[in-house]
Design a protein around this nucleic acid. Structure first.
Length: 569
RNA sequence: CGGGGCGUAGCGCAGCCUGGUAGCGCGUUUGCUUGGGGUGCAAAAGGUCAAGGGUUCAAAUCCCUUCGCCCCGACCA
């Protein structure tokens, strides 16, 4: 492909709207353009890269025995009522009406459609197991679209759904998808971690997320530095933390005036102690009722863990008025002693004595607090987020905190949807049973951006061969020089013919412009044709990852390039 | 939705405080030049100053409203 025949609108400056490297680069390299918040057009270069990721996903799904189908993005309201998710999905789902005033939604995911299908078409154990997948646009009215393709309102997802006769069989399907996902991300050139995750709105018991490691990632995770244990911060457990010993542990509580000291920092400074000696008292409304949650002063309560521990989704931080009503004091002076609400404490507080908390009086705190003695704790639960350096819950190792981009998620769903849609089968004993399901998603567009996030330098993108929009660029240094242009054209033609996807940069621009664009776009291979090299009957060949080029005889150039493409694919 | 920031040429920005001629760099077009890391010279095109309303003789500038975009929180692939 000639550069002058396609559209590659590179930008010299970083667009103001982009924050993270991959987003800036996708815009600057001319891969995508924004239509509106969270809505993007794929330009020729971007689409080519996207198709590469799709192809890898498709090949691995096929290899794993999944069947490709294509379901409608536009779906009737009824199936969402049937699964009881019409309400659950809430504002996330785009809703619309047709001219007959029928309610429709734009599918944010396809459990309903696929289970409805399977309930009609499959009825015998002889037809199972089955895994269906599709690669298609999903629509979600995100609270906040962000970072380009990272969190978009319309995005491409590879979603798959497994149907099995038993939990054991479903586990096998899950494992097959799990392994396929590892291969997919591996082939895309991504460094990922697989972590235990929260199942969220999808339901079901167990799930794993595939996290592409990146400092700009939206998700936190921890992994053990010695065993294979890894989890999303939303649910990561910690090992046992020894109880610190504080002075005055045996003494009776004492109320001390602490005017104006509301925050942990202020109180710690006032008493000249370390923050962890403080007992942080946070009030939540659980199903509308106030509940106090205690944590060491240097730790954060994780609402996901809290919600799971209390077995409800209805957990919100109490507003200032509620706090004042329950504690009888201004915000910042809540404490557990004498508090009229159920009190749950993080396990790290077990054995706390000689600690400091709010006194439930404005401008006062309480010292020498002993939880065992002074407070009726309803339960010690794992409520605080794990963090870097915490002990691993499974071994003697330490947890390391990292950030990641959630590129894939696999769920064991059980019979939630098969029950709702009557997706059942007749086993050999003749008594109808619900199918056991799993669902599996890859954010294809997000994966593409994650590849860039992990593979770039200060000059631009550094594509892995497998997802590069083109394998090579042939750069004519001086298009006015007829022999250069001819050699470059012939070479580009030979490369294309041998399966090396090539762009011929035939622009009438200065060399510097072309070098800079080649680096920005990140072609894995660059061939430079110039008068200088032509004098030696050679061209220059350079990989994006290498610092300097090597001279290759013109006659060998196509083969050399082909060998590298082959070796790195 | 809560908190913060921003909307002026394709991109990056100045002008706004203190009202009066819409400007700069890059890009684009034309001609010449140059030809190994964003070349130089010359000329040209390109703007409902986000939108609507108000104040004023006069609004990019002051006031009000709306919309859009970005960042921080809850949601997710």
């Amino acid at each position: 492909m000639r550069w002058t025949d396609t559209l590659i609108p590179t930008l010299r400056d970083d667009p103001l709207e982009a924050e993270i490297a991959s987003h800036k680069l996708m815009l600057r390299a001319g891969l995508i353009r924004k239509l509106a918040g969270g809505l993007y057009t794929f330009l020729p270069l971007g689409l080519r890269a996207l198709r590469k990721v799709e192809r890898i996903a498709r090949e691995e799904m096929d290899r794993a025995g999944a069947l490709e189908i294509l379901m409608p993005a536009l779906q009737p309201r009824e199936i969402w009522e049937q699964s009881k998710r019409y309400a659950v999905m809430g504002e996330t789902m785009y809703r619309l009406q047709d001219r007959q005033k029928r309610d429709l939604v734009l599918g944010p995911t396809h459990e309903e459609v696929v289970t409805d299908l399977v309930s009609r078409e499959i009825s015998s154990y002889r037809q199972l197991p089955k895994i269906f997948y599709q690669i298609q646009a999903k629509f979600r009215d995100e609270i906040r679209p962000r970072f380009g393709l990272m969190r978009a309102r319309e995005f491409i997802m590879k979603d798959a759904y497994s149907f099995d006769v038993s939990m054991e069989a479903a586990d096998a399907s899950y494992q097959r998808m799990y392994n396929a996902y590892r291969r997919i991300f591996d082939r895309c050139g991504l460094t990922t971690r697989i972590v235990e995750a929260d199942t969220g709105a999808m339901g079901g018991k167990l799930s794993h997320e595939f996290m592409a490691l990146a400092d700009s990632g939206e998700d936190g995770l921890v992994e053990c530095d010695s065993c294979s244990c890894a989890a999303n911060l939303e649910r990561a457990e910690r090992g046992f933390l020894p109880t610190p010993l504080f002075p005055d542990a045996g003494e009776s509580p004492l109320v001390v005036p602490t005017p104006g000291a509301r925050t942990i920092e202020q109180v710690a400074a006032f008493f000249g102690c370390e923050p962890r000696r403080l007992i942080k008292t946070i009030l939540y409304l659980v199903k509308g009722e106030p509940v106090a949650v205690l944590a060491p002063g240097d730790r954060e309560i994780n609402e996901h863990k809290l919600a799971r521990a209390l077995e409800t989704a209805d957990v919100t931080m109490a507003d200032p008025r509620a706090i004042e009503t329950v504690t009888g004091a201004a915000v910042g002076f809540a404490g557990p002693v004498g508090l009229q609400a159920p009190i749950y404490a993080d396990t790290a507080l077990k054995g706390y004595a000689g600690a400091i908390s709010g006194a439930n009086r404005t401008d006062a705190h309480m010292t020498r607090v002993c939880l065992e003695r002074d407070v009726r704790v309803a339960g010690y639960l794992d409520l605080c987020a794990a963090r870097d350096g915490d002990p691993c819950p499974r071994c003697n190792g330490k947890l390391r905190e990292k950030r990641g981009i959630e590129v894939g998620h696999v769920f064991k769903l059980g019979a939630k949807y098969s029950d709702a849609f009557g997706a059942s089968y007749v086993p050999d004993d003749g008594r109808r049973r619900a199918m056991v399901m799993g669902c599996y998603g890859i954010g294809v567009t997000r994966t593409l951006q994650a590849v860039i996030e992990q593979n770039h330098d200060d000059k631009g993108i550094n594509w892995p061969m497998s997802v590069a929009p083109y394998h090579a660029v042939v750069l004519v240094l001086n298009p006015a020089h007829a022999a250069s242009l001819q050699t470059a054209q012939d070479l580009a033609q030979n490369l294309d013919a041998s399966g090396v996807e090539t762009v011929l940069d035939d622009r009438n621009d200065r060399p510097g412009v072309k070098f800079a664009d080649a680096d920005l776009i990140g072609f894995p291979l660059r061939v430079v044709v110039s008068e200088r090299s032509l004098a030696k009957n050679s061209v220059e060949l350079k990989q994006r990852t290498q610092p300097s080029p090597e001279l290759v005889p013109i006659a060998d150039a196509a083969r050399s390039v082909g060998d590298i493409v082959h070796a790195r694919s």
